[in-house]
Design a binder for these strands. Structure first.
Lengths: 238, 238
DNA sequence: TTCGTTCTTTGACCCAGATCAATGATCGTG
DNA sequence: CACGATCATTGATCTGGGTCAAAGAACGAA
């Protein structure tokens, strides 16, 4: 099991990769491709809060095998925009150079397989299925990022909060009675840094949704959404 | 010539596609792939301000052959977030269904070849080079979108304006003396809808940059940036 | 060139959400 | 299970950029 014995810094990634593909509907994977990926990938585990070190000097491709992570773009000291959250089964690509510096941190104990993007692409070049899977995943990431841009550019604090909860409900929620139960791995600060808001505003917006009967909180991380239908009205979509 | 006789709604896209690949360093393209693309693609021209109709009911892939376009996500009536600007040589993928409705408009007289994403992918599946080109382009779009998310989430109006000008300088600017000359195809409203600001704020920020000696305007569209180095300090990056 | 329309600039004022400041809840640890 | 540290909530106040309003430029058409 991936989570068995932290901290593990390096072991054979082949099994993790096979698992990743087998469980996550990324389609068939040939033994040859698996061997190549196993040889190039670096499996590593990070405890909650720890940094997941990216390939220095190279673009990185990461498979998230287990846990939950945040991808952070640092605009300048003390201004960190969370660009995406990732969960089990997500595939992330991170540029080395560009406008901003990126880093990745574990929100829970997490496992990931990292590749230098170049090496990964070299393998994918010989396996159209892998290349296509990668393309589809990248498109999904792009579409999500565009949605985030709309939220950050055009939505009120309440709309952002409602959208965030709806997205999380879809990605990691569990149906519970008529509603949806969330166990959020990220802090209020993380939510704020993702939505372009402060922790205080996040807290106030959750408070308002609570008063509207659309969210029930339990501790720091559990949120129950009794009525997704009504909540969706508050997202500011058409 | 693409711009010869507007409005042209449909003609053989094969030549346009060949041109697109030949001029824009998308690598080699086989005759077979070109034939397939030619058979599936819809070449269309749009005058300044016109809508570029996307495939209804399908995800769309678009090659921008000529001109300049904006990709708009509509959150709700009267709230349009411009998700990206595209120029000659850009490759755009647009989802049909998702959180928001997307549309594409020409900022100048423009030519584009459109594909139903499914049909395009089917062709690309037999041409790993094309698939890889598509992947690279999609990654570029993702990286740009993340930069936009950082701007929208964490930057002040002035920083967004400076970043915008720097990005445009890189994409469509022409070096002129020690500085850079821009002929922006988009209106102040477009800039505002792209940066999450109002036209008034955009105008005021340009005014401030003018007073700082970092921008000289001439008419609505021409902006000369005499000192990119200093301007970059105002972008809010590290 | 002139006219009319549309786009841009500038000014006055306002508000959503940031900032500052406590207080209260939660949870990991010994 | 009690302590300390971190995280979340709530309240008071401030401000960057939005909104409203009115000139003033720029461009297209005739």
């Amino acid at each position: 099991m991936l989570k068995a014995d932290f901290p593990v810094e390096n072991s054979d990634p082949r099994a993790a990769i096979a698992d990743f593909f087998a469980n996550l509907h990324l389609g068939e994977i040939s033994t040859r491709t698996l061997d190549s990926l196993g040889a190039q990938g670096r499996l590593l585990h990070a405890r909650k809060g720890e940094d997941i070190p990216l390939h220095a000097g190279h673009d990185t491709v990461a498979f998230i095998c287990e846990g939950a992570t945040k991808l952070i773009a640092t605009a300048s000291r003390q201004r960190e925009q969370i660009v995406a959250f990732h969960f089990r089964g997500d595939l992330v690509s991170i540029p080395q150079s560009g406008e901003h510096a990126y880093s990745m941190k574990a929100l829970r104990d997490s496992g990931a397989v990292l590749f230098a993007a170049e090496a990964f692409l070299k393998i994918a070049r010989d396996d159209p299925g892998l290349l296509e899977a990668m393309l589809i995943r990248t498109q999904t990431a792009l579409y999500r990022c565009r949605d985030k841009a709309v939220a950050l550019g055009k939505k009120s604090a309440q709309e952002r909060m409602a959208s965030f909860l709806m997205i999380m409900a879809e990605r990691i929620g569990t149906r519970e009675g008529g509603g949806c139960l969330l166990d959020l791995p990220m802090s209020r600060r993380d939510i704020g840094d993702s939505l372009g808001l402060t922790i205080e505003t996040v807290s106030r917006q959750i408070g308002e949704l609570r008063e509207l009967g659309l969210a029930e909180t339990d501790g720091r991380s559990r949120i129950f959404l009794p009525d997704l239908k009504t909540l969706s009205i508050y997202t500011g979509h058409v």
